[in-house]
Design a protein around this nucleic acid. Structure first.
Length: 268
DNA sequence: CTGGTAACCTGGCCGC
DNA sequence: TGCGGCCAGGTTACCA
């Protein structure tokens, strides 16, 4: 689930539920979720602290503590946050839980354990060290910057969109939606895209990600809230294209299932 | 540089 | 009811 829109909504969720509550304990229920930190170190760093604000870059979420350090979260394929007050509401696949002084809790839920939690001193340093590209909806990342970024790319368009080192935040699901909206075939070589197609692609990136955030990405109800014109609502076997009514095709693309409309997104 | 593949993991779902 | 097989929204090391 967690691509940029989902993580943005997790950020807002953390921001509205978990700020300025004093952390009294941390329960690490599976330490495979920890990244370059031990449970003991994490507890020492967090006990008595509180979250002050949250920011996001691509698929990474950063929570600032009141001592200036930051918690990093990456959600892998199945991660999410759950805030709750009654212990019986603790989700089944809770892997790590923050317990607040007022009796409420925030859980990091992650079925497949591909998510990661760590501690850093500064998000900008972390982003640079990881070599992440610009955030896909950063207001400062304009159309000209996008065109310049793609000018250096020789390969196919879908792997380019999903390359976090080029552009941060887009994964398998949203790259399909973006390419469908921009009417581009995922295997189109980037250098073959016309200036108009690149403009359309840039607009589709912004628009799709923002609509997904607005409609509640990260929650169960997202799909039904999206416009009927979205491919995401038809991401299943035997579906028809919402534009032309033709059959939706699936292709394996670098090991991942890709959905597309062969009529609306013709092979270049 | 690009892209395919396997590996890391668990669990839900489908079909027999 | 049980069980095998398949699939899943990410990342990365390694190999053509």
């Amino acid at each position: 689930m967690p691509e940029l829109p989902d993580v943005e909504n997790f950020r807002r969720y953390l921001q509205s539920h978990a700020l300025r509550r004093r952390i009294i304990d941390i329960e690490v229920r599976d330490d495979r979720i920890l990244h370059r930190i031990t449970a003991a170190h994490l507890k020492r760093a967090l006990r008595g602290r509180s979250f002050e604000r949250a920011r996001r870059h691509g698929k990474h979420l950063f929570a600032a503590l009141d001592d200036g350090n930051w918690l990093t979260m990456h959600f892998g394929m199945t991660g999410r946050l759950a805030f709750f007050k009654r212990s019986e509401d603790d989700p089944k696949l809770d892997r790590l839980r923050f317990d607040f002084e007022d009796g409420s809790h925030l859980a990091f839920v992650d079925q497949r354990l591909l998510g990661e939690i760590g501690m850093i001193e500064d998000p900008d340093t972390f982003i640079a060290a990881e070599g992440l590209g610009p955030d896909a909806i950063d207001p400062k990342f304009g159309e000209a910057a996008f065109v310049a970024l793609m000018a250096s790319r020789k390969g196919q368009i879908k792997p380019a969109l999903m390359d976090q080192h080029l552009l941060a935040g887009i994964g398998n699901i949203y790259s399909d939606e973006i390419l469908f909206q921009a009417r581009l075939h995922p295997a189109m070589p980037v250098p073959d895209a016309s200036p108009a197609q690149l403009k359309a692609l840039y607009r589709a990136i912004r628009n799709v990600l923002k609509v997904a955030i607005d409609k509640g990405a990260g929650s169960e109800e997202l799909t039904e809230r999206l416009p009927p014109s979205y491919l995401l609502r038809h991401r299943e076997k035997g579906a028809r294209c919402p534009r032309c009514g033709g059959p939706i095709a699936t292709v394996k693309f670098s090991g991942r299932t890709t959905y597309l409309c062969p009529r609306c997104q013709p092979k270049p």
